[in-house]
Nucleic acid binder design. Structure first.
Length: 402
DNA sequence: TCTGGGGTCCTAGGACCC
DNA sequence: TCTGGGGTCCTAGGACCC
């Protein structure tokens, strides 16, 4: 094992390599060195690509049309969310066998605070090596690990280790690690912030570090400016928060959908809003939450996007209330034959349903929507999702083929 | 056939209250 | 007569992440 001074490196960041693609090909050895793209759909983007595909310039979030152009012989596979979720859950359990202080950031990455695990393991580096070996062994996929004094640095370190590597950033080498890198390597600095920093003549993290904080604040806003300056010196007050407890629900639940082709047909839009409202409501009830603020999102064919929201005087998790609000917000836009690309419905301000006093409203019937939808949930559970749908979502029966 | 779907967090202005 | 601030909620938009 390398001799690296990892004292003070209490944060480990683990990131699966090309996660969806790795899972998709792990039982298909003939594809192990092939360019494989996971993604698809009619107007989809790349979810994940193997490193063989990346050599052609294919990247995550790239439109599939472009990806296919760059790499016409790539094997395209649709994502298998169930399988990926199962692998994700198993990997997170492996992390928790090292420390309970695991903060998942997504399906395929997590922060671990290992400061309390150093009696069982000799060092943070040893923990990183242990996790990499176990995941390779148990899941037959590779991951990259960053070991560092702060989350930001651990995240940047694992990125530096990709693919299938481990990078330690010793306390004494923080600025040497950070300063040569481009500003765009900072986690949280995307396209817009990179462009803004470039306009200021700041291209490396060292440039940011040596810019007076008030200059950054004037250009980027007080908080972003201060945070960028701190991060450029390796200061990071972000704490690792173990996964939300059951008593702390998500902040919002939403669904949106891009139409197969842009539409200006209000009936099509309304039917989609109903479907999305039903989807969101069902997920809310499954999570046992209700919420007060309903947000409608509309994206037009030129990709401009607007949102409209309304906060109700009560919390809800039932389709008709969410749908009625979304429809009203849509109607108030007063669109005249606008070409619509996407619509979305989101409910925010979520609370545990059990903690929300369910006051009877003036218009509420004794047997309300709530009871009706609980019956629906039960029927769906027993007979499947297609068993119970709003009437307007039921397609006319297709003529039988002879 | 350019640009998914799930989220989080921040900002900024106005309303409203004290 | 002057033109205070602070706090919170709501709304709209934007940046960013995977």
């Amino acid at each position: 094992m390398k001799t690296v001074d990892d004292a003070g490196c209490s944060v480990v960041h683990v990131d699966m390599d090309a996660f969806y693609a790795s899972v998709a090909i792990r039982d298909r050895p003939e594809l192990h060195n092939a360019p494989v793209i996971v993604g698809g759909g009619h107007r989809g983007v790349v979810l994940s690509a193997t490193y063989a595909a990346r050599t052609y310039g294919v990247r995550s979030a790239m439109p599939m049309t472009r990806a296919r152009r760059l790499c016409p012989h790539a094997v395209v596979i649709a994502p298998d969310f169930e399988c990926v979720s199962a692998v994700s859950a198993a990997v997170m359990e492996t992390f928790r066998s090292v420390t309970p202080l695991v903060e998942p950031l997504s399906m395929d990455e997590a922060f671990l605070d290992v400061s309390g695990s150093l009696r069982r393991f000799s060092s943070p580096l040893a923990i990183g090596e242990h996790l990499r070996a176990r995941i390779a062994d148990e899941q037959r996929i590779t991951c990259s690990v960053g070991v560092a004094p702060t989350p930001q640095l651990a995240k940047m370190a694992s990125r530096r280790g990709k693919p299938d590597g481990l990078v330690v950033v010793p306390v004494a080498e923080v600025t040497a690690f950070l300063h040569p890198q481009g500003v765009e390597e900072i986690w949280g600095v995307g396209e817009k912030t990179t462009a803004a920093l470039h306009r200021l003549g700041l291209r490396t993290i060292a440039d940011v570090a040596h810019t007076p904080v008030d200059v950054l604040q004037r250009a980027m806003g007080p908080r972003v400016g201060a945070r960028l300056h701190a991060l450029a010196w390796g200061d990071d007050d972000r704490r690792i928060i173990a996964s939300r407890g059951a008593d702390e629900p998500e902040h919002s639940i939403g669904a949106d959908e891009t139409f197969g082709r842009d539409t200006d047909d209000a009936d099509v839009v309304l039917r989609e809003l109903l479907r999305l409202s039903a989807k969101v409501a069902a997920r809310m009830r499954a999570a046992k939450v209700s919420g007060r603020t309903i947000t409608l999102r509309v994206r037009f064919s030129d990709f401009t996007t607007l949102t409209r929201s309304r906060t109700l005087g009560y919390s809800t998790s039932v389709t008709p209330e969410i749908y009625a609000t979304a429809v009203d917000l849509f109607a108030r836009l007063g669109l005249q034959r606008a070409r619509i690309r996407l619509v979305g419905v989101r409910v925010e301000g979520l609370r545990e349903a059990a903690k929300v006093p369910r006051q009877l409203r003036l218009d509420e019937r004794p047997f309300g929507w709530e009871d009706a939808e609980k019956a629906v949930d039960l029927a769906v559970h027993r007979f499947g999702r297609m068993a119970v749908r709003p009437a307007t979502l039921v397609e006319p029966r297709q003529p039988q083929a002879p």
